[in-house]
Amino acid sequence: MHGIISSTLYRAAFRDPVLQRQFDRALLSVLLDNWYEQLQLKYLQQLN
């Protein structure tokens, strides 16, 4: 990661409520099974 580009808050918007629920479930799954932390450690060597 380079300090040139500051961090931002990303957002996702859905017109289809079914698609939104599917996305929310998938995101929750990623967060609950520590997959995101594993990616951070693998590529960034630290947790953000």
Rank of each mutant, 00 (worst) to 15 (best):
M1W: 02
M1G: 11
H2P: 02
H2T: 01
H2E: 03
G3P: 01
I4K: 00
I4P: 00
I5T: 02
I5V: 07
S6Q: 04
S6Y: 00
S7E: 02
S7Y: 03
T8C: 01
T8G: 00
T8N: 00
T8H: 00
L9G: 09
L9P: 01
L9I: 13
Y10L: 06
Y10G: 01
R11P: 02
R11W: 09
A12F: 14
A12K: 12
A13K: 12
A13I: 07
F14E: 08
F14V: 05
R15L: 13
R15F: 14
D16Q: 08
D16I: 08
D16L: 08
P17I: 05
V18I: 12
V18H: 09
V18D: 07
L19G: 09
L19I: 07
L19Y: 01
L19R: 13
Q20F: 12
Q20E: 15
Q20T: 01
R21V: 02
R21I: 01
R21G: 08
R21Y: 05
R21Q: 14
R21L: 07
R21P: 03
R21H: 04
R21N: 09
Q22M: 06
F23S: 05
F23M: 06
R25M: 10
R25A: 15
R25W: 13
R25S: 12
R25Q: 11
R25T: 10
A26H: 12
A26E: 15
L27C: 06
L27V: 14
L27K: 13
L27R: 10
L27Y: 15
L28F: 06
L28P: 05
S29G: 06
V30I: 15
V30A: 11
L31P: 03
L32W: 06
L32N: 13
L32M: 15
L32G: 07
D33M: 12
D33Q: 11
D33P: 02
N34G: 14
N34C: 11
N34I: 04
W35F: 10
Y36L: 12
Y36N: 11
Y36G: 07
E37C: 08
E37Q: 10
E37F: 07
Q38V: 02
L39T: 10
L39S: 07
L39A: 08
Q40W: 01
Q40K: 05
Q40T: 04
L41F: 14
L41D: 07
Y43G: 01
L44P: 01
Q45P: 02
Q45H: 15
Q45N: 13
Q46W: 02
Q46F: 08
Q46K: 15
L47P: 01
L47M: 10
L47G: 03
N48A: 09
